[in-house]
Amino acid sequence: MFRLIFMLCLLSQFALHADAVRLNSSSSESLLNADTTVLRQLLNQETLIRMSVVKNVHNLMKDVVTLKDSMTSLQSEVISIKQKSKDEKDYVMKELEGIKRQIKLLNETQMIFEENLKKQNSSGLNLLNMLESSQAEGRAFQTDTLKSLEEVKKNNTDELSDITMQVRVLSASLMRLNEHVQQQDDSFHERIENNYKAASALFTNVSINVQEKTNASLHDLMSKLSETKQNQLRLSAAVLSLEWFKNNITGGVMESSKKRNAPIAFTAGVTGSDHYWSSGILVFPTVLYNTGRGYDSSTGIFTSPEDGTYVFYVTITSYNSKSIYVDIIKNGLSKVRAKAYSSNQSGSNMVVLSLDRGDKVSVNFHSGRGYYSASTPVTSFTGFQICCF
């Protein structure tokens, strides 16, 4: 722009100078030629200047158009920025309104919480008083319970000692019977009958006493009660053995029994624990005794080799604090159930079954999970024949 103004000023000066030259042309011919030459030069310079001015004007117009385009773009961007600012402002205002509502709700919740806290504090005081009274009653009850437990423990210890002594006496009686069974006279049958009746009465009295004592005991005496139950089952087996001896002697089978093979019997156990076992047949792979080949250690199933009366006995031990229930099964039907629960406790049960040849007996899962055993089996399965048909 300044360059254009400068060029216009030059053109004005040249025009003034040309006018002055024309006015003074009449004064001197010698100066005319010189002025003519100068005028031509000036005219040539003016033409050049005009062309330069036109060129600059065109460039200036282009710059103006470019500036207008830039202004239009800037205006669009400004409008876009204003719109974004407006949208962001609306969004922020909405967020602020939501935050205000949340703050209001929080204030209301806080007031409600403070009211509930006051109510809970008042009820907590009452509860604390009740708790203190309950604790006092609990301490009194605990003292009474400990005294009762001491008395029950003392009674059970005495009872267990009596049972152990009675088992020893009964075992000694059985040994004496086995040693002298062939040396007895006609009164042997009568003595056996008397011993059988005495053992049966002793077993009945012991069972009644043990049942009365054990029903009054608590969870802390479960292990001793389990041992008592096993002693009862051993007494039952001893009584059944006495009955077998009586039947054989009465029927005159003692002589022929010498010619027979060993009786059908087995004992098998588990030498490891399995805390995941929860279905199917419990297989006892470690065979301790198996005459008659009735028990299959690969399947855990006893198959009766011949008709007869059999006794089966199972002992199951729980795994840690889990419980486990198992059944003695005959041909798919449950006959008796043994249970064990909490802290590796043992449970046992026994059953007398009449079997035909080919009947199958096994120990099956009923409920619970897992069992415990050791290298010397504490989970075991036993069966033996007491009479044949």
Rank of each mutant, 00 (worst) to 15 (best):
A201F: 13
T204M: 07
A198L: 10
Y196G: 02
Q232T: 02
N194I: 09
V206S: 11
D220R: 13
L225F: 03
S223P: 07
Q230C: 03
H180S: 09
E193A: 14
K224N: 10
V206F: 08
N194D: 12
H189W: 08
T204A: 09
Q184L: 07
V206N: 09
A201E: 15
N205Q: 11
I192Y: 03
E190C: 06
I192S: 04
A198D: 15
K229Y: 05
A199W: 00
M222Y: 09
N205W: 01
D220E: 14
V210T: 12
D186R: 04
T214I: 12
V206G: 03
N178K: 04
Q230W: 02
E190G: 11
R191Q: 13
S226I: 08
S217Y: 05
N195P: 00
L202M: 05
A199N: 02
N195K: 12
S226K: 08
A216V: 12
H180R: 06
S200E: 09
E179R: 09
L233G: 01
K229V: 05
K213A: 10
T214P: 03
E193L: 15
L233K: 02
T204N: 09
S226D: 06
Y196F: 13
E212T: 10
N194W: 07
M222A: 12
T204R: 13
N215G: 09
A201V: 07
F203V: 06
A199Q: 01
N195W: 02
L233E: 02
I208S: 10
L221F: 12
E179Q: 07
N178C: 03
S217V: 06
L225T: 10
N178M: 04
E179K: 06
T204E: 13
Q182L: 05
H189K: 12
N178P: 00
Q183N: 05
H180I: 04
Q182Y: 01
L225H: 07
M222C: 04
L225I: 14
S217L: 15
Q183G: 03
K197Q: 15
H219T: 13
N209Q: 09
K224C: 10
V210I: 07
V181K: 05
Q183S: 05
A199V: 01
D185S: 03
D220Y: 13
F203C: 12
N209I: 06
Q232L: 12
Q182H: 03
Q211N: 14
L221A: 15
N178H: 05
F188C: 00
K213T: 14
S187V: 02
N209R: 15
N205M: 04
Q183H: 02
A216I: 11
D220N: 10
R191Y: 04
Q230H: 04
L221S: 15
K229S: 10
N194M: 15
T228M: 15
A199C: 08
S226A: 15
N205H: 11
E193P: 00
A198R: 11
